[in-house]
Simulated scan of single mutants.
Amino acid sequence: MSYRLLILNPGSTSTKAAVYDGDRQVAMKSIVHTNQDLAPYPTLYDQLDYRVALVRGWLGQEGIGLSTLSAVVGRGGIIPNIVAGGYVVDDNLVDCLRNYPVFDHASNLGGLMARAFAQPLGIPAYIYDAVTSDELLPEARVTGFKEVTRTSFCHVLNARATAHKYAEALGRKYEDMNLVVAHLGGGISISAHSRGRIIDSVSDDAGPFSPDRSGSLNMLYVVDLCYSGKYTKKEMLKKLRGEGGMSALLGTHDCQEIERRIESGDEWAALVYKAQALQIAKGVGIMLGCFTELIDAVILTGGLANSKKLTGMVIDYLHNLVKVVVIPGENEMEALALGGLRILRGEETVHTFHPACALVP
């Protein structure tokens, strides 16, 4: 049976929309929203009708009739108490997205937009692999701080999509494999995938530094900085995300620029780049310790994985320990489409959101 899916991925400054016939993309548009465009809408959720109307207009320009759609898949929002995979967008999930998200984020509009299109057509609306999907093992939640319990926070959508892609290339099922996936982007997160479940992860503030994030540090140093009187809380948060990592060390997070500096003899740039590779390898090593059986492979993915120089150094550190494969790039639209397609084909069971549910034990 043939399925046509509308894919919706709202961001803070754009709404990406695409139409897929099965696994083939037939149309895609990134609709930009300027500050002036969004100014009339006091809250994020006031933007819903505006964004839906823009996508409707684009579909009309493309000559794609709404009646031809089989389902709509939206980017998963910042939602509490969910696991990886797809969720049907029903009244409970809509209420959570509107009124009880972990925090406001443009991705919270993904499910709401999907429902706005799907409900009048009588077709299903889904979200898939939300960032806050959490399937950690109980022992992975415990920290040395009595007041702090770990939760999973990683690039779930791309990590699972890439793992599925790798398994399919081998003629195997993702659910039958043990993998470590390192998403190398503006932020770096690393996740341990045990037979279809992310059992542990290193978030972008707890592992390797990255193009613009500082990664993990000795905590005593951070406490000293926080109480030094030199920085406000806002400034410290910027050091962690946005103004840390290679941006702080080299004044740029452009890897092509950094590699040009290295080729021209910049020893400091070469050292920072090697340190970046070492930290990625060490982050992978932490995740290797999550398994009680041998793993099938480590996958390096995300935008930074396009750098053969960087991935080559990471492989140099790891190749004697484990098989390492590189699958560069990040295609969120394809990942959402393929997730929705697996649900429609009956290859995955879709979840139903329960507001009072506990996290997976």
Rank of each mutant, 00 (worst) to 15 (best):
N331P: 06
G144C: 09
Q256T: 12
L271V: 12
N331Q: 11
V73E: 04
I7L: 06
V89A: 02
V350T: 10
C255L: 14
S30D: 10
V314R: 08
S107A: 14
F291T: 04
K230C: 13
A114P: 12
A356G: 03
L310H: 05
I199W: 03
P138Y: 14
G185E: 00
M313F: 10
K238Y: 08
G11I: 02
Y3P: 01
Q47N: 03
T68G: 06
K165W: 01
D204C: 13
Q256E: 14
F153L: 15
K234I: 00
L38G: 11
I188Q: 10
E263K: 15
A18E: 06
L6M: 10
L44C: 11
V94P: 11
S247Q: 14
I258H: 07
P40E: 02
R4L: 01
H105W: 01
D90A: 11
A159P: 05
S203K: 00
T252V: 06
G74C: 03
D37S: 13
G185P: 07
E168C: 02
G185Q: 05
A270F: 00
Y174A: 04
V32C: 09
D254S: 09
E135S: 13
R261P: 11
V156G: 03
I79T: 09
Y20L: 12
N320K: 15
G76W: 09
C290S: 13
R342C: 01
L97I: 09
I7R: 03
R342E: 12
L318V: 07
A53L: 03
F117E: 01
I198R: 07
R342G: 04
D134W: 13
G289T: 12
A118W: 07
F353C: 08
A130F: 03
I127R: 03
V326H: 09
I262A: 08
V322D: 04
G111H: 02
L341M: 08
L359E: 09
F153D: 13
A140G: 10
D200K: 01
L300E: 05
G340W: 02
T132G: 03
D224V: 14
I258A: 09
T149I: 10
M246K: 01
G57A: 14
V222N: 04
A277T: 03
K238H: 06
